[in-house]
Structures are given as C-alpha cells and as structure tokens.
Amino acid sequence: MDDKFQTQHIQEQESNIPEGYIKEDGKLYRMPYKIIKKITFNDLNQKELIDIAHCARLQYRLLNLDAVIKAKVSFVKKQIQIIYNNLEADNNKAKINRNELIKFIEKEGLHIKNDKMIEENYDYYKEFYSSTFFPKSIRNALPYGWSKEEYEKIKANKK
C-alpha cells in the first residue's frame, strides 16, 4: 500500500469519516475514489490513430468503461492518457487492470510501446476533484463593445 494513502487511511479511521467520504471544513462529501492510477501511452503511431475524429471516438469508447474515470486521446500529441480505477484501489467501484486496458486499446488497432508508457499514482481528490471545484482563471473577458484599454480605465475610475 502506498505510504501517502496509508497515512490518510489511518487518519480517516481515527476521525470516524465513513467509508467513501472525505471531510472538508468539518463537512462530509462523497468521494468514490482515493488513490487510483494514471497511465500515459506516448509516441503512438498517428497512422493508427487515424485522425482527430477517430481519437474522439476511441476516447468515447474508453469513457464507456465503468472503471475509466477520465480519458484523453490526443492525435496531435500522439498520446493516450487514462485515469482509471485499478484493481488494488481501496473502493468498491468497478475496476480494471493495466493489461485489460492495453488489450482494449490494441483491439482498436493501436500498438502500445511499453518503454513509452508511464504509470503513476493519481490522487483523485487533489488532482481532479479539487481542480474542477476550484478552477483557475485562464482569461479575462471584456464587456461587449469595450477594448481592453477602455475597460481598464473604467475599472481604474471605479477605484
């Protein structure tokens, strides 16, 4: 068992957090996954990926698997990245192992290069859940009909 997870597991038991939940600010929230896996298949053959449309379809097919939480198939990056619920994960949701995933992808006509594959632990709460609930700003929109300079002036005048 992963050390980080072991510590977390003990802390939960001691604080009486029910199985499948986390505590934030004293409140309980359902958390179906804790430490699961992220696997990245790199340097895939673009001829086998075919095009963006086929990548999107493969992504759909991967997402259709209950044990796959998120999938990203990128034609441009020649890469497939999958966040999945591995057999060893501590939860009662549907699971899959790495070899089943590889077989699934190979059935779609893709060859996986084992030496280009990276698998790592994935903290569902910290890396996924927290980012969707606290998303970063990536741009600053302007009100319709105003340029950036004009809008900056309005904001400055307000101060």
């Binding site: 963006i52 999107a56 990203k72 980012s131 998303p135 990536i138």
Partner: peptide
C-alpha cells in the same frame, strides 16, 4: 474559469 481544462478538440 472553465471547470475542465482542455482545448476541447475531442
């Protein structure tokens, strides 16, 4: 601040 950071190509 989109909740899921991706360009949406798929």
């Amino acid at each position: 601040n989109p909740n899921y950071l991706t360009k949406g190509e798929n």
